[in-house]
Design a protein around this nucleic acid. Sequence first.
DNA 1: ATCGTTCTAGAATATTCGATG
DNA 2: CCATCGAATATTCTAGAACGA
Lengths: 485, 485, 485
Amino acid sequence: MKHNSNVPAFLTKLWTLVEDADTNELICWSQEGNSFLVLDEQRFAKEILPKFFKHNNMASFIRQLNMYGFRKVMHIDTGFVKQERDGPVEFQHPYFKHGQDGLLENIKRKVSNTRPEDNKIRHEDLTKILASVQSVHSQQENIDTRLAALKRENEALWMEISDLRQKHAHQQQLIKKLIHFIVKLVQNNHILNIKRKRPVLVNSSGKKPKYIHQIYDDKSCVTNVKGSEVSNDIIICDVTEKNPEDYFLLIIKNFHTVRSTYSGDIKQTEDAVSTAADDNLRSRHLDSSDTTSSALQLNKPSGLSLEDPVKLMDSILKENGAISQNINLLGKLELMDYLDSIDCSLEDFQAMLCGKQSDVEFDFLECPSRSMILKHKGTKSKKQLIQYTSCPLLAFLDGCSPPPDANLVNNSSASPSNTSVHPTSSSDMSLESEAVLLDTSLESMQPARSSLILLDQLTEAEASEQTLFYLCELPEDNFTQLDKV
Amino acid sequence: MKHNSNVPAFLTKLWTLVEDADTNELICWSQEGNSFLVLDEQRFAKEILPKFFKHNNMASFIRQLNMYGFRKVMHIDTGFVKQERDGPVEFQHPYFKHGQDGLLENIKRKVSNTRPEDNKIRHEDLTKILASVQSVHSQQENIDTRLAALKRENEALWMEISDLRQKHAHQQQLIKKLIHFIVKLVQNNHILNIKRKRPVLVNSSGKKPKYIHQIYDDKSCVTNVKGSEVSNDIIICDVTEKNPEDYFLLIIKNFHTVRSTYSGDIKQTEDAVSTAADDNLRSRHLDSSDTTSSALQLNKPSGLSLEDPVKLMDSILKENGAISQNINLLGKLELMDYLDSIDCSLEDFQAMLCGKQSDVEFDFLECPSRSMILKHKGTKSKKQLIQYTSCPLLAFLDGCSPPPDANLVNNSSASPSNTSVHPTSSSDMSLESEAVLLDTSLESMQPARSSLILLDQLTEAEASEQTLFYLCELPEDNFTQLDKV
Amino acid sequence: MKHNSNVPAFLTKLWTLVEDADTNELICWSQEGNSFLVLDEQRFAKEILPKFFKHNNMASFIRQLNMYGFRKVMHIDTGFVKQERDGPVEFQHPYFKHGQDGLLENIKRKVSNTRPEDNKIRHEDLTKILASVQSVHSQQENIDTRLAALKRENEALWMEISDLRQKHAHQQQLIKKLIHFIVKLVQNNHILNIKRKRPVLVNSSGKKPKYIHQIYDDKSCVTNVKGSEVSNDIIICDVTEKNPEDYFLLIIKNFHTVRSTYSGDIKQTEDAVSTAADDNLRSRHLDSSDTTSSALQLNKPSGLSLEDPVKLMDSILKENGAISQNINLLGKLELMDYLDSIDCSLEDFQAMLCGKQSDVEFDFLECPSRSMILKHKGTKSKKQLIQYTSCPLLAFLDGCSPPPDANLVNNSSASPSNTSVHPTSSSDMSLESEAVLLDTSLESMQPARSSLILLDQLTEAEASEQTLFYLCELPEDNFTQLDKV
DNA sequence: ATCGTTCTAGAATATTCGATG
DNA sequence: CCATCGAATATTCTAGAACGA
């Protein structure tokens, strides 16, 4: 009886019991040797068991056998007497065989672990499953609620978006209307301006300069007034006879000049003009430069206006509002022309009056031409130019704080006017005296003129800077801020 | 021993066994009578059991006892050895008591255990669990569907929002462009107006002025009015006497004509005109068809401009920045100034004329310049300055920083105006006469003029301040109302 | 006979019984070997059964047979009586065949309850349920995640919408401001235009008119130019010398006044004006209250228009584009009128001048009103009317489609101008001749006038029709396009 | 912590009884 | 009465479980 290894005591004991020849009468191997027999249960229990175990109960012994996997071998009793029923008890185990004790190691005691697997697991699982199912259920309700909430939210979102869409549409409508409105305004202005163009008046008398009021447009032409009479008429006739293309070119030039003038400095512009003008024009220019040039200058804007539609479009499309102005300007330019013509009429009137009383000479002295770009050769016209430039009206239009000194710069351009003025003066006043006057006025007024110009530019600067700043850049900030809000 | 009732055979047999005095040496009641003892297990099994049962196994007997709820009474051995081990076996059951066989009915054999309970319970649970799991599953699918729908909705919402964002951006662009456009317009107007201010003039010659009416257009032509006849006056009179309704009708006709002219070709228009025009017109038309046609052509451009609206609109709507009208208005203000100045000139003229009759001509003739900034030393120029400066309107219209002296000007100019005028006039003009004139004009015109000025200023103020104010600080109320709409 | 396997004892016992040759006389195989016979029921039960079973009841034996699926083979007695009743009893089972003991394994004892099923089903179900529950669980987590994501998305959407709302509101603000701005501009224009309407002159009589330039402010003051000297020159000097700051202040005052005027009612304004006006003004005011009041009244509309901004805004925002046009038109029309009036004035001047040379004084006296609607009976006034109407300028300003006959008008007006001028200028012309002239002009100019009117109306028509059309009925296509962009 | 002992239970079968057609 | 079956019980074998070592 050697119990080495890990073979349970029971097995070794059992092996010993079965093997032990002394006990063969109570317990022994079966004939095949693959099972063992307990011949007399009662005696075995009371006599043998106690020697090996702590009990004398056959039941306990059997329990152990069962515990180790031993199984009872059923006997098919031939069913004789009941006495015989007490036949031997036989147990067997695959690894419990006669002469093969080494197999005992394979005999394992049953562990009461099957329960957890089957039953308990089931029960536990059931419980767990139930719990989990219920939790799932409750959570599902939760999810359901959230889903419903989300759905409601989404509906609200749709409403919001619908609302926004409507608002957007309204805004779009508004903007559209605004645009239409503006377009209409611009158009109306444009048309109005264009339409006007009435050469107010006339002057006449065979003396003095004659004003030709024109309005130029894109491919515009110059409209001259043909007069059959001596005075302005003649001039007009001349003009009319001239080739419209020339005028156009001139206009274009002027246009560019003007533009450059606006953005650039005056000198440059002047140069451009002089260089650009062809001899013809130049000559004419020289001849009647006063009126023509002035007219052209006035028209400059209109020239722009003619280009407007396209430019405006482009500019607008290019987000450049720059052109848009032009368009606007055009209308205004034309209007300006109109007003200009009115002014001319007034001048004519003045001249008329003056002439009446004193041969109109004064006029020129006092109505210096106002084109800063133009170069006048005609004496009289120059005078007028002077007057115009000195025209205080312009000051108003500046709308800016006129820079006091900037004017001097302009002066240079104005100075020539001086020269021209002197000879121009006819009338009772001696040229010299007139010259003096002019000079005087020149000195004192040039600044104004220049200032005027300056002012203009200033104004523009303001416009392009300040105004723009306020209207466009401020907004940007606002937008930015707004967006950030 | 009759076992009728529902008491199992085992119990009755057991009861019999225990009661049977013959077997008392092997099995009997305990002393207390609430349990029974098997004194000699082995003998009892082999001798008694077979008599009552179909076996002789103590185990089977015990199994039955257990099956009926009998329990073994454990003997607390007084520490003595195992001697007691072979002691009697004692079993008890609440309803198995000596002398009380009636209680046997209460002893119930254990049914194949908890199956019914457990099983049924489990089954029910299982069913429930299964059902709930399935419901959960189906609902989960439901939720899944809804989730997917929501997700889709959300995606749609995102699309919507993206769309709205884009639209908003477009609008923003539009608005920006509008603003830019307006700003530009305003700026341009400003510039233009500033530029203008041309010194009304004076021309003169004692002859009659001649009116030249022209209309310029793109491919413009010049329309001159040639009058070979005596005077227009007569005609005018007639017109005046005509019924306004007629005018209206005529206007309508013209309107349509015009419209057709715009959209159609000139010929068509002309036809329309000719058909529409009464004989009178027609005749005239024929007479001066040359000019007429040209005039129509002149209108072409305007026709284009009319088409513009659409184009412009389109372009604008096509992301082309929009443009705005506002500017226009500004321009108008300034324009008003200008016109005002013209009026002044006219008044001056009038005065001149009057003066002529009373010798104040010069002033007017020579006062073309009225820049308040300029300081003229020349007496004549000064006069003009006065007039102009006295016209504060212009200053306002500039939209610029008003000249510092404004107040003084007002003060001085206000009351003094009267005084100044009267005494001021030196020259040949008699103070008195002038005073009279002034008074007169003052009475009748001042108010109008002043009102004009006021309005102008209002306008301007609005433009430069209010505008900004409105643009940037407009009361939310309106918006609120809008939003609610 | 030991029997391990899983074959029930009953089957092995039965097989043994049937096979056992010793018992063949009581129990044996059928001839075919696929069933067994119990020849002598009673003897079999009493002699054989007890040897193998714990009973001697044929019933129990049969019960067992049935329990294992054995079926009694019914003998179709050939009609013989019940003699056969004591005949052999035959039982068969598909797997109980002679010589094929291996089939016994297939014979299964009927299990009482469905418990085993239940149990097994339970297990399977449990497994399935567990799996499904777990899947549900995991999917729930999935759903949960998606829900959370959706919620987050929705929150983002809300943010987006909130953002869009804000942006929209900002845009609305912008647009509103723009509209306000534009409205203000238009109104100002309007006002200006309305205001203008100054009867350019004429007054006078043989005296010289006196110009008083004033600026009104809230508590306005009139700024007159005081000149200590005779002519204006002196005054100007004064003005010029004044401090610019003062001007500015004055402007500011005016601004405020204007504002209050706008928001308040006219009376208030008037009061303010009157109160504000210094005695000087007041006196003057009283003197020429008629004109003043009229002037003020003229402003009334402007005042109303001033209130418009809000109304206009509202209307515009309320999709009424109608108003906007009107404003627009008004401005232009009025401007036209104004220009018209200027032209008239000019013409008057001209006439005056001419008159001077030929007694044209009348004109001025009679040309105060030039409303085209007015019907003048005075011949001279008519003349003026003619002139005004004939004024092509106005045509321009309409910004409308030029009336078809415009040319004619021009022609006529042009020609008359000439005519009128000539004779007029001559001055020697008698009134009659003038009348003649007028008539003539009338004929030729009426059209012009009408055209003018037409234009105006056209303009208006455009405004009320076209503009409206454009504003309200512009093809949605554009928008659509935009939206698609 | 495995094993051993004991009591009890589970399970399958067995036996019996009664129900059913 | 019989064949079958359901059901309860009975018998047997094995397992579960508590407890102790």
